[in-house]
Design a protein around this nucleic acid. Structure first.
Lengths: 254, 254
DNA sequence: GCATCCAGTTGACCGAAATCAACTGCTGCG
DNA sequence: CGCAGCAGTTGATTTCGGTCAACTGGATGC
């Protein structure tokens, strides 16, 4: 082994993955040394997107998976009538594009919420490398699975939680997800509009607006346009667990 | 090549996968010949479950993926307070257990809705075989992706569709999924209770009951306890696409 | 064969959130 | 600088589906 080459690789790596702030969520987790070097070769085409521009559209051919490097995106479904449902918001370190694996074309859309930069992982190459690096396949499936589990939580929320609880859970979730990106205090800058939040939560914008006001009045948080400061994390946590309607209780037939 | 051996393999195969009625959905799709032989070796422990008994529980160690061979199951989340949300119903040919990939333990529960038989795919062995059969990995990811897409549809439904539309979509979906299992007419036998249906749809049982009655009155279908006969598939399809509330419309900021 | 139990249905009423409407205040453009 | 336009807020009213309650009828068991 030429140690000069190793240093070069490390630099390469630093430019691409290691510095990407996605230490915990991204593909490389659990992959080390030479394997990481190989993976590094997969990543190319670091694109940047302006607010409102699409990463992929419904029907686009499946070419790659994408890692959010900075900024944020939303993914959503839109039917012929124009009805729209936001599926998820994607923060730095998170991977999107898995919807296209099944049919080799995207069945949802992804759009930047703000100026964002994206790492592109061409799927064909990812599969090539995976043949040499078995751990990569497993890691990839683990990531998809994690996304599925997150969607389960979203579903529960939509299933039947009162409006205030939904917003509380949404905010708590953002706090948690931003926690391993920045260590500073509990202040959020919401990159998505009130319309987006409402849609994501299965509510209307008026309801979300009223809830923000109410939460501010009760001292849970301080809102100013896009910026939200959590004043009482304890109260917020409480709001995530209010009493649920009776029909969610287990109805046994054992 | 010894042709006698090939015949043996085919018999083996017939006993396990090919006869399993999961031609389209199951793992082997897109996998042929020797590869299929290898895969066949993975499948073991064909278990049967009685109505109400668990395939896995929240917190169980991840050992295997499961294919429904006959019968049906529900998967659901249940929190400490006992609140429950059904995530999906699983019909013959469908795979479940992917929730455990992320954390190596199940984070949901699976329970038989009726007497069911299940193929167990031990994950460790599946991974071994996958190393020799690259197509298997890809197929596996395709299956997870398909499940994700199905969950997206569920989410849209929960997001904000009126009650009647939810039930219509649910029934339409069952019809579609049973379509490649049996070619006979449009009669369903619902293996799940009204409570399960209501919970899955984010409604209460009374609402579901009223909707069945209404759909029967309008001649869309005929209900008798667990059996549902779709009299007017055209009307049912229409009910899946009524007008949605305004806040689902795209709210542009391009 | 009758009593019990519980899934399922039906009806009356209520309430949380949607709708409708008016207004506020950024933001960006000529 | 001032106006247009739209995101966001606030208030009044409506409505869909949930809650509560009573009832039905099929299944199970003694």
């Amino acid at each position: 082994m030429d140690s000069g080459a190793v240093i070069l690789d490390l630099n390469q790596l630093r430019r691409s993955c290691a510095s990407c702030a996605l230490h915990e969520l991204c593909l490389p987790a659990g992959i080390y040394g030479n394997d990481l070097k190989q993976l590094d070769a997969v990543i190319r085409d670091k694109r940047t997107l302006e607010r409102g521009s699409a990463l992929y559209r419904d029907g686009d051919a499946f070419k790659a998976l994408y890692v959010v490097r900075s900024g944020s995106l939303k993914t959503f479904l839109q039917n012929e009538a124009g009805d729209l449902q936001i599926l998820a918001f994607h923060l730095p370190g998170e991977i999107l594009g898995f919807d296209a694996l099944a049919s080799n074309q995207h069945v949802s859309q992804a759009e930047a919420l703000e100026h964002s930069s994206i790492c592109e992982l061409p799927y064909a190459r990812l599969m090539q490398v995976s043949n040499d690096v078995p751990a990569l396949h497993r890691q990839l499936m683990r990531v998809i699975s994690r996304e599925m589990v997150a969607e389960h939580r979203h579903l529960v929320m939509m299933g039947r939680q009162p409006a205030q609880e939904r917003l509380a859970i949404f905010l708590q979730n953002l706090v948690d997800r931003y926690a391993h990106l920045s260590r500073d205090d509990i202040a959020l800058t919401l990159s998505m509009s009130r319309y987006d939040i409402a849609n994501y939560l299965g509510l209307v914008v008026e309801t979300v607006s009223r809830l923000f006001t109410r939460m501010q009045e009760t001292g849970v948080l301080e809102v100013n346009r896009k910026s939200v400061r959590i004043l009482r994390p304890d109260l917020l946590a409480e709001l995530c667990n209010t009493q649920h309607p009776a029909h969610l209780k287990r109805h046994d037939h054992d």
